[in-house]
Design a binder for these strands. Structure first.
Length: 302
DNA sequence: TTCCAGGCAGTAG
DNA sequence: CTACTGCATGGA
């Protein structure tokens, strides 16, 4: 890491494409928790409780990160770097995964067409869980609209050039809401109950990223997550993949995953669970990345 | 009109 | 154990 004023450069060695990552972030859903302006990303991030706006641009085999709205301290820059490394999964060496793609009968196209795509994470576990609840069983466009309403009503924000940038709401705040507050935002009664219940667990300290990470293996982590009302197998796997960056997760039942597999395998209906398991078998230890690359086949330009 | 979206819990048999 | 149902909304 190089420090210079309010900037930091993060090296991106190996299989990495800023364009592919940017393309994922800007795939047409109007996310309210970051903004894409040309070739740069603007991401609000709380650093030691301080509202910070990060600007991320592509550098020379690196990401150039700048603080837009505030003076950067050295610990602040280190926290910003840690967040971005996690967000873009920069510590991962993808060569073994690309080797598996190249050995597969149907998938070598992925390493060419999606070269450098990373598993873009959701480092905040509370945000990841809420996002899953919101996204369950509705189309993604509507899910993004619901998330925006939640964030704009209950999150804090910071203004920069007279435009607001939002932070995801704190669990302590959402824990105090009534179901009708969220129903007013077009949440279903169940989704409102689930989000408030999860917020309470975080607010009380009975659930945290650290406590989940302390579990000895994947099945213990899944077990803890599925105890939560509103969290099933799909959500638990999605969260382990996107927030804890586990590499061995398959969100069974995911409609996008089913559609991608049906298309690639030429099935006329959705694959059975056994068919999914069989397809993923050669990718042991890289299941999460295969999921990301299968989802990538669903978006327009190939 | 009906069906289905990046599911899940509750209930009945 | 499996099968079925309601949930909110909107686009196909």
């Amino acid at each position: 890491m190089k420090l210079s004023g309010t900037k930091v450069n993060i090296a991106t060695s190996g299989i990495f494409s800023f364009k592919e990552c940017l393309r994922f972030l800007d795939r047409g859903y109007d996310d309210c928790l970051y903004s894409i302006e040309g070739n740069r990303i603007i991401k609000p991030l709380l650093i030691d409780g301080h509202k910070t706006l990060l600007q991320i641009k592509e550098g020379n085999h690196s990401l150039e990160v700048a603080f837009l709205n505030t003076e950067a301290t050295e610990p602040g820059l280190e926290q910003a770097e840690a967040f971005i490394v996690e967000w873009f999964d920069l510590d991962r060496e993808l060569q073994p995964f690309y080797q598996l793609l190249s050995e597969h009968s149907l998938l070598p196209f992925m390493s060419r067409e999606f070269f450098g795509l990373r598993l873009m994470g959701i480092p905040d576990l509370f945000e990841a869980l809420c996002w899953c609840i919101i996204g369950q069983q509705i189309n993604l466009a509507f899910a993004h609209r619901l998330k925006r309403k939640l964030v704009e009503n209950y999150g804090t924000s910071i203004n920069y050039y007279s435009r607001p940038y939002y932070f995801f709401p704190e669990p302590e705040l959402l824990a105090g809401l009534n179901v009708r507050d969220l129903k007013a935002l077009q949440f279903s009664r169940q989704k409102a109950e689930y989000v408030i219940g999860i917020a309470k667990e975080f607010a009380e300290g009975s659930l945290s990223k650290a406590s989940l990470r302390n579990r000895v293996n994947r099945s213990q982590m899944l077990k803890r997550l599925i105890e939560i009302r509103g969290v099933g197998e799909w959500t638990a796997n999605y969260v382990l993949m996107k927030s804890l960056k586990r590499m061995d997760c398959i969100p069974y039942g995911d409609s996008g995953l089913n559609n991608a597999l049906s298309s690639i395998l030429g099935l006329d209906k959705k694959p059975t669970r056994t068919e999914v398991e069989t397809f993923f078998e050669p990718f042991a230890g890289w299941e999460s990345y295969l999921v990301i690359y299968l989802w990538r086949t669903l978006s327009s330009s190939r």
